[in-house]
Design a binder for these strands. Sequence first.
DNA 1: AAGGTGACTTAACATAATTTAACACATGTG
DNA 2: CACATGTGTTAAATTATGTTAAGTCACCTT
Lengths: 231, 231
Amino acid sequence: MEKVKVLLVEDDPNLGSLLKEYLEAKGFSTVLATNGKQGYDVFSKDKFNICILDVMMPIKDGFTLAKEIRAIDANVPVVFLTAKSMKEDTIEGFNAGADDYITKPFSMEELLVRIKAILRRTDNKPSLQSEQSEFKIGNYKFDYKHQTLEIKGTQQKLTTKEADLLKLLCLNANDILDRNFALKSIWHDDNYFSGRSMDVYIAKLRKYLKEDSSVELINVHGKGFKLLTGK
Amino acid sequence: MEKVKVLLVEDDPNLGSLLKEYLEAKGFSTVLATNGKQGYDVFSKDKFNICILDVMMPIKDGFTLAKEIRAIDANVPVVFLTAKSMKEDTIEGFNAGADDYITKPFSMEELLVRIKAILRRTDNKPSLQSEQSEFKIGNYKFDYKHQTLEIKGTQQKLTTKEADLLKLLCLNANDILDRNFALKSIWHDDNYFSGRSMDVYIAKLRKYLKEDSSVELINVHGKGFKLLTGK
DNA sequence: AAGGTGACTTAACATAATTTAACACATGTG
DNA sequence: CACATGTGTTAAATTATGTTAAGTCACCTT
């Protein structure tokens, strides 16, 4: 079971580190940013399951940050923290796409249960994938939906991960598939072990694909992989 | 787009009818029950998209009602309304599976935006409560209401669980049916044994469905199952 | 109350999917 | 070219699923 990743953006360093410690103790992997700009930078480079944003922050406020975050990932849940308790702000927060809006002071336990309530509704994500399901790779025919790879009448059944990875490669055929991008897409994580796991799958795909010598699955050192399709 | 159906259970008749009117003005179809027992009766006879329950009610309190409702539909969102603001109650509410917990007094507008926030996350999930009863699966004809599966004139009688599971698969045809979602929907539980039980039913369905080779019931490792219906 | 039946669950064992470990080799850097 | 780091590959370990059969329970029959 992979850890849930939380992006916490809070300009009060005391509260921020307190919450971070608490959430980590509860089993969440938490990244703390202390202002909106930093929060955006962190989010744009990594993948998170939920964002907890302080509303009032210098440089960039929580609402603005939320919009930018949603521009990157329209589905990530966002929770606002705020000292304001005026109705208009609550409404504005929800209109900015909030999943919850918590007024300070709050108990950490309440924050926790509210986070859990939101995650209950989002963890089984519909994973909206691109529609395309059939690909040609040299003389191979790859059917993502049916998870099959066919050549000269021989059909190879693929596992879910094999199919996911091959699909990403096809969508970037003859172009580089970024390593971390692939890891985040398929493994939802880019740690060392996920990376090694992906390498194992690359090796498996190479085996499947060696019937057509014009097809190559090459590595671009430090960057990712490239599927070279025949001619 | 059908109207969203709201079950509102509130023993204060003034507040109850006020909220009902407000929600209906906002485009929701709302049924008001004035006590827990009545709320249960209404829910068991109809399908709702969300339940808003007062916690403190005579006869049957909101938490108890929520548990009974969840036994019928483990996925329906529940929001608690309460005058209590003690932390323990909030926590208890969320542990009872609450999606939100709103403390009186609250503005109706805030209730509205909180409802919308929850519905954003639950909208498009086909559920067992769906009215649809007849499905085509490749060359098969599946009648949920009569619990029959027919092909080439041969009719197979299905048990309740077989039919429930097949219906969920049909509602998600060619798309993934999340394992835990299915378990909660049909078994009202997602422990190890329920999971194994479901696997047994998957095996049974596969047997029934092997008359049409274009129909496949495949596993998506760690996620769920996918019913591939021949184009 | 004994026996039977059907639906569902649990057990048991088999196989598959994925991750982790282990070791070999490659690449780029100073 | 010595080193750190990244990748290739195979195999073992772990976890998830496939499948069949045995067990349980509610209900029906006599």
